[in-house]
Amino acid sequence: MLSRTRWLSVPALLWLAFFFLIPLLLVIALSFLERGTYGQVVYAFTLNNYSRIADPLYGEVLLETLAVSLLTTFLTLLIGYPLAYHIARLERGWQHTWLLLVMMPFWINFLVRSYAWVVILRSQGVINTLLLSLGLIDQPLSLLYNSAAVLLGMVYALLPFMVLPVYVSLEQLDRRKLEAAYDLGASPWRAFWHITLPLTKSGVVTGSILVFVSSIGMFVVPDVMGGAKSALIGNVIQNQFLSARDWPFGSALSIVLMLLSVMLIFLYFRAIRVQEREGREER
């Protein structure tokens, strides 16, 4: 049985090997090479790219990126969980409608949607025009090109990645377990806290990782909505490859970013497992 179905994974493995593994190895190799005067790659080994990252400038950007990503993850969870909960409680037909609405933004190009936010938020944008004409303000508010705008854009863009996995885990939750909790004297809130939340943890974990990993490398939103001041590490990497034409340094930054993500996800998993064990031992 196994040997026959094993072949089914071959296309995916080939795809990953050619378009993920090999490029990744190239990026790793590239990060140890030198940049030539005209932006070409010089095939000489160096650790220079990595020591450059120690520059506090990059450290600051990296910290800022981590902070924004964590905040984005937290906010999408805060907004996405109740939404997923609401959808999971609807009738079948309505569930499909709502899920369709959640996924609808994917039908429109991401860049276009980001610029739509610019139209809404800029000085002569929808909100400012409205508030001005109502006489509520006499100076346009600067809603765009700051960290808050970046955060708004990130949460907007990544919300579906939180809602969908959480919805799936809520959908699989056996309602009778909740009834059992009510039956044993748990109020709705306590039943949520002791039963629903722990039993949908897998959805929360999946959603958090998806959102966190996506936001840590995000460069379109900060580029379009954050302006020059709010560059995140994704923008710095993008610049190294496109404007600065320093591929080795861009590669080194990518590797560091990747290692950092993997490390954080690992810590996250461990924290959850420890929490689980403590939860079991507490009485």
Binding site: E179, L184, G185, H194
Partner: peptide, 26 residues
């Protein structure tokens, strides 16, 4: 209290925690 058809035990709790749940809630 009710004994459910497929028991509806809490899968993330030990036998002891399952049994104590009602008293804890009260």
């Amino acid at each position: 209290n009710m004994v459910f058809q497929h028991y509806a035990l809490f899968p993330h709790m030990t036998v002891e925690e399952n049994i104590l749940f009602g008293l804890k809630m009260k």
